[in-house]
Amino acid sequence: MIDPTLLVQMVLGALLGLSVYLPLSGGQLSLATPGFYAIGGYMAALLSTGWPALGGAAPLYPLPSLLLELGLAGALAAAVALAIGGPVLKLRGIYLAIATISLVEILRVLNLNLPFTGGAVGIFAIPQPFSDPAGYLGAALLLLLLVGLLCQRLEGMRFGRAQAAIRDDELAASCMGIDTARVKLTAFVISAVIAALTGVLSAHFLNTWNARQGSFDASITTLAFVVFGGSRSWLGPIAGGLALTAVPELLRPIGDLRLIVYGLVIVVGPVFFPQGLITPELLKGLARWWPWRQREAAP
């Protein structure tokens, strides 16, 4: 039986994977996810520890307050993403990646130095809305379900087609009447909101929050979730997020070697699975299986 705490971390990892995946499936290598994750976490930490009306003193932090935090964090992330998305998304490829990493670093330094974010120690004793990991697991799974469904639906509609077209050839897409700037901005904003919501849950779950929660390594690690899991379907980043979050934890018994092995996994994975774990062919294969299994199940 896997430790429920680890399960929560895995689900949060899957959510971050989806956040990186959304812009990437439109060809945009945006690594801003940890920045918005940090924004969400600070929002939760500051509100729940600093605003008594929310009920932080109660034995269990009230769920409506948690929902309010989620709403506010999502709104703030969306506002920030809207404000910076226009100019930033004009950048392409590695330039976009570096600009978004810069953003994450700027935010990290701000969080480390601003008067109200608790410096290097950060903010601790964040109130708990659930009494055990199972509660967090439920909440995180619910969020993952909603976000996963959203991604699945988006892929089937006009927006998803536009994203795929932009990924393949942005210029041709714009000549087909697709408002590429708008599509890219939409994906960026949704991605930011997902990251911020994940940050809110994570801050409560971890009980403390500091500037280390959104750093450059996290940018690449979350990208690894997507690449490792597969960047051609929304199931990919979920698989990658779950797996790559679990690996270092499951390796704890080997002690100091564990991060070395983790590094090896990251180096070797893309060589053997250049398309990630979940490939379009795999999905096609599964789809062929699906009705057959149903028929078998029905007597």
Binding site: I220, L223, V227, F228, L259, I260, G263, P270, V271, P274
Partner: peptide, 28 residues
Amino acid sequence: LRRRRAEPLLYLITSLGAGVILVNLIQL
């Protein structure tokens, strides 16, 4: 990856992985 003509995105990941290995080797 070069042998397999993999897409450039993958190099970001594998080189980061190599960095993780080196850093942790030093620590070890």
